[in-house]
Design a protein around this nucleic acid. Structure first.
Lengths: 205, 205
DNA sequence: TGACACATACCAACCGGTTGGTATGTTTAA
DNA sequence: TTAAACATACCAACCGGTTGGTATGTGTCA
């Protein structure tokens, strides 16, 4: 990457991803974002008509970031789609460590502050969460066919359940000021998926 | 003893529970809260040194509200502790309908906006979530003994997993502006618990 | 009993700082 | 030459919180 040629617009989106995850959308001022990005207020309002518009752009960038990160992760090389699904969940569990703001979800954070007051931002967060979550559907579907799993559930609902459990894990981590409870919750999710597919429990170290 | 007249303090806590769930903590101004409660700003700062202190009081009231509501619900009459646990989850799933702000969690909403910036409020939210969630532990523990269930998990972690899934369900509901995805996620949670205890899937209507 | 001391509950007006946003430049690259 | 990219200076509205004050108890002791 060549960060030397980063435009003010890109720097502001990067600043929003960082600061909003720490302080939330409303508590983050335009001045905060300009300071973090190293640009002036004039540059801000040149690129974004309102603060909300930067939030929308950040949510879109967040979706692309997530789909890039998880779409090219090592576990995606597995031949069995079930291994790819489980690899995704284990990867997400193993990401739950270190400072809380570094592993939590921008869209999940912003939607709580916007869902009743800023419809455009809420919709962008919806698109971010669904747009990433549903990328799992083809592999879940293929895994069901491959392993002959029927059940009283849809692949879409399971993919969204993944996102719900992870969003809930982030809330536990924020409240607990650490990631242990979040990892335990991710372990329950992995155990659930293994049971759905008739696999034995994961081996413990 | 208890006069029908509600004090300014109680009215402000009630106003916070309502308005903060709609708009979030930071977007709710002291004037908003006073208007909703029908009291003046002077009364506000007579009872609460800061806005944050009202948030803390609201989180405590929220915990008491939840423990009262779920502790006295009809399903608690079941003799088998497993039926009480499943009754709890079914009750929580069935609550996921109507306007989103009416079934979401005050503590989960506030902790996202406070965890890095307002430690006192974050701790109060932690106490609210854990303090309610862990009330399920004795029944989970009793259900394991009664049904001879061992497994590579603790009753505490399962109780917190319940809260994580529900918090995640609330985020899906906020993003989706409706409760369907949240109910589907609660169904996955119920299916998980039934599998942990070797029960057949819930019957569908 | 009465009266004084003190406490609690509440109120309207106000304050300095911060907010998102604007108006008006200046620089840069094609 | 021109338009987009950025900077500087500024503003009106709003923010959390403070002020000085009133009304209504409530405990104490002569």
């Amino acid at each position: 990457m060549a960060p030397a040629k980063e435009s003010a617009r890109e720097k502001l989106i990067g600043a929003a991803v960082k600061v909003v995850r720490e302080k939330g959308f409303n508590a983050t001022s335009v001045d905060d974002l300009c300071r973090e990005a190293g640009v002036t207020k004039g540059a801000f309002f040149h690129h974004f008509p309102t603060k909300t518009d930067l939030g929308v752009a950040a949510a879109e960038a967040w979706k692309l970031h997530a789909n890039g990160l998880f779409g090219s992760a090592p576990y995606m090389a597995h031949e069995d789609p079930l291994d790819r699904v489980l690899g995704y969940l284990e990867f997400r569990r193993d990401m739950l460590e270190g400072p809380v703001p570094e592993f939590t979800c921008l869209a999940g954070t912003m939607v709580q502050e916007s869902y009743e007051t800023l419809p455009a931002l809420r919709d962008a967060c919806h698109d971010s969460i669904w747009g990433h979550g549903l990328t799992l559907v083809p592999d879940i579907e293929a895994a069901r066919k491959r392993h002959g799993i029927n059940g009283d559930w849809t692949s879409e609902s399971l993919a969204l359940h993944f996102q719900a459990v992870l969003q809930g894990a982030f809330i536990l981590a924020k409240a607990d000021h650490g990631a242990k409870a979040a990892r335990d919750t991710a372990d329950h999710l992995i155990r659930y998926v293994r049971m759905l597919f008739n696999l034995p429990p994961e081996k413990e170290a």
